[in-house]
């Protein structure tokens, strides 16, 4: 339990640093660290498979692409100007509303007493596979179709058209 508090504090701190860091590269690195902390939470929840997949997909692939793009930008030119007071006010109102919605949604949530059917095998990859391929096969396959469509779209966008300048 103590470790959980430590990990949560670390997660929140690094997530805040993502927002507050001045340098975009530092932001990305803090975000990677946040993903690590979340992976730690998965381990505490006995979900080792989710931990590994979270690291592979988010920290290992997506954030590398983020870094790629940010490194290509000229950071000195693209410093965002400070926003006007109206924008700041609108942002504060929107964020506050979202916070209120979250609090209202979680206040009456029935968390249960934690005595549900949780065995040693609950978060393991075998039981996860059984659930995905037996109970939720159709949604699972539909998600793969969605990924495929996105992939084809990315290939089409990245394709060099005839007559386009060759770098």
């Amino acid at each position: 339990m103590n470790f959980w508090y430590f990990l949560t504090a670390l997660t929140l701190l690094s997530a805040l640093m993502v927002v507050f860091a001045k340098n975009p590269i530092h932001s990305v690195l803090y975000l990677v660290f946040t993903f690590f902390c979340i992976s730690g939470h998965y381990v505490l929840l006995n979900a080792q498979f989710l931990m590994a997949v979270n690291i592979i997909v988010y920290a290992g692939a997506i954030m590398v692409l983020f870094l790629f793009v940010i490194m290509m930008l000229d950071l000195r030119k693209n410093v965002p100007e400070s926003k006007s007071n109206l924008t700041k006010l609108a942002g504060a109102v929107l964020g506050g509303t979202l916070l209120v919605v979250f609090i209202a949604a979680t206040r009456h949530m029935n968390l249960g007493n934690g005595s549900g059917a949780i065995g040693a095998q609950t978060g393991m990859v075998e039981s996860l596979g059984m659930i995905l391929y037996k109970d939720y096969l159709l949604p699972f396959e539909l998600v793969s179709v969605l990924f495929f469509v996105a992939m084809v779209g990315a290939v089409m966008l990245g394709k060099r058209e005839a007559g386009e300048r060759n770098f």
């Binding site: 080792q48 590994a52 592979i56 290992g60």
Partner: peptide
């Protein structure tokens, strides 16, 4: 029980050291 995925995850992190 996810040993090989651990290897794979750490390998994918190796990119950061260089990048």
């Amino acid at each position: 029980n996810i040993g090989i995925l651990w290897v794979f995850g750490i390998v994918s992190l190796g990119v950061y050291g260089i990048l």
